[in-house]
Design a protein around this nucleic acid. Structure first.
Lengths: 350, 350
DNA sequence: CTGAAAGCGCTTACAG
DNA sequence: CTGAAAGCGCTTACAG
């Protein structure tokens, strides 16, 4: 196809060696004591000819690809796609490109994707780990790759993590519900031992235990489609007529759950209050608008890419002190958890 | 760091030449008449040693990177992120990885990202083009790169395109509104000459002209933030009290517009019916649920990746007959455009 | 101050 | 049937 200019073409044209061109291009000209005149000559030729170094050749020689592999659960999920967006923008400025991949939280798929990233020789990894890939992460660490986990982590691994205070998020939400008069609060979560899910569950249990209230927990199996999630939620509500509020541990559980509640003909929050974890830019337009615990997407993204690029350039020393950043979450109160109207109405009718 | 096995290590171990190993690895062993015994020996050694060829070296030698550059307007937009998701899954099976980048519909940024893709030597390009990058696309074509455009295209360029029938989408929507008794239908779109936007606008004008109804058009400047879009929509509604319905030309215009309408205290659809282009998985849960024109995301994705991989492997011949696929859209009718209740109520009270 | 040479790990004619 | 050699385009000691 189109023949691209190489460093040797330039060297020949300027009657110097290719090494000199390379050194000037890499900003090592002063250090190598190349005359200013020659430097200018090279630089102006490069500028005019529009020469662009072959990154593949550079990568083969230096071992650096300026590429980052990012593994999320689902790139079309609003939480992950907005993080991807921020990280890509910051990476762009730093000269890095990202490979995004969706694990669907599947162990085998995640393992395979990590291997692909290895084959591609990415410089670093940003991973929201699927269950069961501890060994693969540990193996990356053993081989001294730069890795940062987020959203969830493995307590047994000495990794750098960027997570949020999931426990406190649910506790704050429970206090809000209790303060608004709700007494029988259900919790719909996933059949999952991942840290972000267990922390949210513990927050729920802890807050209710403290208040001496009953717990109602439904664990939905992993990887169900929307239809099946709705069935589970419907069954849960029907089996627990005492429920006056229900909390969903993830964004997509909430969306499926709200469908189920509407389908049962229950009014939110009059018959059943609703709240969810992970905010969604559309929750404010739902009917009614939905209370949720929001994660600081922008801070998470900034921290992830900064930490990773630091690791990549800092070398092995940084691995000595893995560090978890725990960011605060924010409770966004909307209509779906408004004070228990039924009780108030009841009082009035007496 | 960790020393990886090379083809020469294997050759030395097996006391054969590196070329033989390479040939076996690339499935050209029979063609090159390498004995079955030797083939098996190589293959089993490769399997046991876990040897993985160095893709960077392969790319340098062959010029192929098995990488695709994908340029969208915003990777966190649900339309683009769901396309990204499908494409990534299909690409995974075909051995390709994707670089996703967001242009924000900015000309300079889009140009810069295309150059970065070139530097990275991607094998092909999937592009939702920003305005003003005709030359850059043409230049890719001139250099015989594989390119497929989607969502919008440049009528002057002989590219392969995957688009939807935007014109018909708006026409269908207008007919639905008119059939339901709406007579003063506004259209909120962007100040944009991009094909997807002009086609939607033409559909609006055409359908209303055919019915002999007035048009009310607001063109919002590009790149406004949410707050400013809401201001524009508010001003538009206040300046046109006759409006009984309003159509938004994109998903995010609709979301911002609905905020504005709610803020004005107008009831949907009693005071003002609402519909939008591009469906959204949450529109069904809005208050009321929102009528919209849905694009066939999965078909778009499948067509894009199939076409592109064909171009990449088929070589130049395919460039002789650029082809536009125009996919049908689907009108999803929900509560926000229910039959004009005000009129009916009016009749009843007489 | 600058150039010649080696090598990153692979594939592809070519020779025998 | 198989191996030695060249080369993809770069960078990095090393020599002078």
């Amino acid at each position: 196809l189109n023949k691209k200019l190489t460093i040797h073409d330039i060297a020949r044209e300027l009657k110097i060696s290719a090494a000199t061109v390379s050194i000037v291009m890499n900003g090592r000209a002063d250090e190598m004591r190349i005359s200013r005149r020659l430097q200018d000559k090279v630089r102006s030729y490069v500028r005019e000819s529009g020469y662009q170094p072959n990154m593949i050749a550079q990568s083969l020689r230096t071992g650096k690809t300026f590429t980052i592999g990012m593994l999320v659960e689902d790139i079309s999920d609003p939480f992950f796609s907005s993080i991807a967006r921020y990280i890509e923008m910051k990476a762009y400025k730093l000269g890095y490109k990202l490979f995004f991949s969706s694990t669907e939280n599947d162990t085998q798929r995640a393992k395979s994707l990590i291997q692909i990233f290895r084959d591609r020789q990415v410089d670093g990894y940003i991973i929201a780990p699927a269950p069961g890939i501890e060994e693969d992460i540990q193996s990356l660490l053993n081989d001294h790759y730069s890795v940062v986990l987020f959203d969830r982590y493995f307590p047994g691994l000495k990794t750098h993590n960027v997570i949020v205070d999931n426990y406190r998020g649910t506790v704050d939400l429970m206090h809000h519900l209790v303060d608004n008069g709700f007494k029988n609060i259900g919790f719909v979560t996933l059949e999952s031992a991942q840290t972000q899910m267990t922390d949210r569950l513990e927050g729920y249990k802890g807050a209710l235990a403290e208040k001496g209230l009953n717990t109602y927990i439904m664990k939905v199996p992993f990887m169900l489609d929307d239809y099946d999630i709705r069935q589970h939620v419907t069954a849960f509500i029907q089996a627990n007529p005492a429920l006056d509020a229900i909390v969903f541990a993830t964004n997509y559980l909430a969306v499926a759950g709200i469908w189920a509640i509407k389908n049962l003909g229950l009014a939110i929050p009059q018959n059943l209050a609703v709240a969810g974890f992970d905010d969604n830019s559309h929750f404010g337009l739902f009917s009614p608008s939905i209370t949720s615990v929001a994660q600081p997407v922008q801070e998470i993204s900034a921290l992830l890419i900064d930490r990773l690029v630091n690791l990549i350039s800092g070398g092995m020393d940084n691995y000595k002190v893995p560090h978890s950043s725990v960011l605060p979450v924010e409770l966004i109160i909307r209509e779906s958890t408004a004070r228990n109207v039924t009780n108030i109405t009841h009082v009035n009718t007496l």
